[in-house]
Amino acid sequence: MEDAASELVGVVFDTILFNPDFGSAGPRIRPQIESDRLTPDRYADTATLVGIIALGMLDRDNTVIHGVTSTSPFIGARVRALRDNEITNFHKPNGRFTVGYVPHLLAHGHPLIEQLLLSLSDRLAGLFPEESAALSVIRNNLAWKLKVEQSK
């Protein structure tokens, strides 16, 4: 998400299908042809809501912050996917690899976060093969908690 000076970096963690008509017995009893005239504002109500957790910030001057940011996104801000080189820059501030947002993500408490972190670490291991040993320590620890301890 962009603003003038910096970009908020986040990760998609959830999607919700939004359809207010689902289960509604009201307007749908009318023929579809009349529906537009009767309830025009309902026409575009179905949508896919994408849940994004902010991981940090990437300033224009390449300053990187992982974790809680000092700004929040505003309504209408443009959202775009990061390119691989931008992902690299975000994870290598000052040339050293870091995933300092992990504790922040884990504190979020969403049931899908750990699963998200597993897939994130897999992707990062592909982008940063030289860090795969340390990443696998974090990944294996998460996997153990997620797949073994929670199955008990």
Binding site: T98, G100, V102, A133, A134, V137, N141, W144
Partner: peptide, 21 residues
Amino acid sequence: YPDAFMADPATSPGEVARILG
């Protein structure tokens, strides 16, 4: 350091902690 940070003898727990910020 948590025990799990010491899972890989070739990777120091300090390095894992550093990566985590």
